[in-house]
Amino acid sequence: MGATAALRASEGGMRVVVIERDVAGAGASGVNAGTLSLQIKRVKLMPYALIGHEWWRSAGDAIGFKRTGGYTLAFNAREAEMLHDRMTQKRAAGAPIEFVTPRQVVTREPALCDRIVAASYCAEDGHADSTRTGTYLRGLLRDAGVELREHANVTHIDTREAGFRITAGSETTSSKRLLLAAGAWTAPLASLLDVALPIRVRTNTVTVTEPGPVHLHAGVGHATGLLTLKQKSNGSYLIGGGWQGTGSPEAGRGRVVADTLLQNLRLARFAVPATANVRVLRSWTGYEAYVPDYWPLAGVLPGVRDAYVLACVRGGYTIGPCIGPLVADLILGREPALPLFDPARAM
């Protein structure tokens, strides 16, 4: 989000510097499961997701984009009802989602569980290789002439008459305007400006297996959203779904919790029986920031002149490249093409 905002601001004629605590893409955008699915986006965010999705699609091979199509599955009546209700609304919001019969699903993807009760399909769904996000964004910033300072942990922000003095390590930077787009680390940054953002953090778990025989082509989701699963072209399965680990951004990387990992793997095992025989190589966690109403913080940082914030975008990996430039438009004094989400409402 920070990088795409920087790119738009630079296009608009501003001199921009991106200050990054670790390296580009080290946070949520680099450690998520790479799912680019319209079926798991919130209804009101669908216009943003469609634009973001297009950005990833056009990035193509450089970030390992694959348009695989994706199924969302329901295995009992309660889930079927939820699926129908949710996907109908998402379709109305513009996502090209269709309902398919269990027989159609199993014919096209024989590796899926034969206990499907209802299913939806979106041909636009796919995934990217999130480990390549940082390298890709770094290249874009470099090509645009935007300075990127990595391994620069911001410890002080002083407000001055005409802007900010930002201290990271031994370096100090002066700027007229400031955008905080640090994901789960946004609240600690805002506190340097004495602004208490009500940001909370989820610790999502992702698991990768060793490569197995390629059985599955489309992405797989669950009506509840508690499973995302894909088999990459090398045969390894990536399993996610927002099961919670533990940890806090201030204390370092989060930790996987065996009890939630177990349920995540059971759901994967149930939906795709072929996963039973592959070995799990690694489970990890990534932080996802949110505010209690689960809508983005995208706009003016309340109470600080010329400061802005962009965080807590649910589905931010897909939506980031759409909403980043929109916030940059606001900073440039332009009218954003889609409405933003005023952070003041959350205070």
Binding site: L265, A268, A276, N277, R279, V280, R282, S283
Partner: peptide, 12 residues
Amino acid sequence: PPLRPVALDAIA
């Protein structure tokens, strides 16, 4: 985790 590769079924 896992500290060593483990079959998914063995965990599940």
